[in-house]
Design a protein around this nucleic acid. Structure first.
Lengths: 166, 166
DNA sequence: CCACTGAGTCCAATTATTGGACTTAGAGTA
DNA sequence: TACTCTAAGTCCAATAATTGGACTCAGTGG
C-alpha cells in the first residue's frame, strides 16, 4: 500500500483481499464508532447507546454482528447483590484492532484535528511518546522510500464455465 | 487505545475525538474500498466502477466527497493524441492513509484470512519483511505491556444556556 | 456520419436508518 | 403484595440511502 503509478486494476483483486472482506464486515460508521468506544473500555448496551446516540435497534444489530464475527463476546455477569447484566467485552480479535485504530487516530489527529491529540500512548518505563510505524524484523523503523510492496496471489484456477462465488 | 477496565463513558468524548470525526467522513463501506483501490494506484472513474462493482451514482458521490475533504484531487489530464480524461489521484492526506490501511491489512490477514497475506511490504535494501508496530521516539518497538494511554482534553467551557453545535 | 469510450446523471424499486414507544425481568422499597 | 426502577432489548411508521439500469454528453477515430 504505497504511492503508486496509474493502475487499471488493483494487484490484489477484491475477492482475494482480506482488507476488502474486513471492510465488508466492520466498515460502517456505527460499527466503527462502537469499536472505538469498546477499545476505551465501554461494554454495556445502554452505555454505548447514550455515548454514541445510536438508535437502539441499530446498536442491537451491530452488537449481534460483532459477536457473530468473534470480535466481541456477549456475557452475562453479576455484581454482588445486583441482578444479572449483559456486557460486551472485546475478544482477542477485537483487542487486536487497537493497532489499526491507533494508526487511524494518528492520521485523524494530524489531518483532521490539525495536530490536536486528545489520546496519545507512551511507554510506562521510559515515558517516551509512542507512535505507529513500519518496522523490519529487527524492530528497526523503515524509511518511507525504502518500502516496496510484495504481492503473492494464490494461483487462480482456470475458471470453468459458470460463475465463481462472488 | 489499550485493553481497558469497564468504563461507562469514553475518556475522549465523541465530539472531541478526531477518530470519531474521521469515521464520520470516510467510515463507510464504499469510501473505504475506494480508498483501498486508490492506494493501489487506481485513479479513473470507470476503473473504480468496474473493479468495485459500485453503482455509478454512488461512486460519483463518494469521489466528490473525497475531493472536498482533500483526500483526493480531481484532475484533467491528456495522454498524447487522446482527448482529456479525468483522474482522481490521492493527495498527501490520502497517501497518509497507507499506514492505517496497512495496519488494518495485517489485522484482516491474521483474523479473517487466517494468515494468508496477499500483500506484504518489505525493505528494498535489506529485503526484510516489514510490519506495523508501536515505536518510541528512538524508533524502538514498545512491548505490549509497556504501553499506557495519556488523555489530554482541552478544558471544557462552562456550557452556557442553549445547546452546543452537535 | 457513425460508433466508441469515459465520465458522469437520472430514476424507480428496494433496503436501511431513525426516533420513539413499548416490553420484559429481576431487585429494592413500602 | 404492589410499585418502581433499571438494563436490555423489540417493534413500528416515516425518512433517507442504495441499487441497477438506462440515458446523456463530448471528443476521437474510421
Amino acid at each position: 500500500m504505497t504511492d503508486a503509478p496509474l493502475i487499471r486494476r488493483s494487484p490484489v483483486p477484491p475477492d482475494q483481499c482480506n482488507l476488502w472482506k474486513a471492510f465488508g464486515l466492520i466498515g460502517d460508521r456505527w460499527t466503527l464508532v462502537i469499536l472505538r468506544s469498546a477499545l476505551y473500555g465501554v461494554r454495556r448496551f445502554d452505555d454505548f447507546q447514550v455515548e454514541l446516540e445510536i438508535p437502539r435497534s441499530v446498536l442491537s444489530n451491530r452488537l449481534a454482528g460483532l459477536v457473530e464475527l468473534g470480535i466481541m463476546e456477549r456475557r452475562e455477569y453479576r455484581e454482588d447483590g445486583q441482578r444479572a447484566r449483559v456486557e460486551y467485552p472485546l475478544t482477542d480479535m477485537g483487542r487486536a484492532l487497537s493497532l489499526p485504530f491507533m494508526a487511524m487516530t494518528e492520521w485523524s489527529d494530524h489531518w483532521i484535528g490539525k495536530g490536536t491529540s486528545p489520546l496519545t500512548l507512551r511507554s510506562k518505563t521510559s515515558g517516551q511518546r509512542l507512535r505507529v510505524a513500519m518496522v523490519d524484523e529487527d524492530g528497526k523503523p523503515a524509511r518511507k522510500d525504502d518500502i516496496e510492496p510484495v504481492i503473492i496471489l494464490p494461483p487462480r484456477r482456470p475458471a470453468k464455465a459458470g460463475k465463481q462465488e462472488k
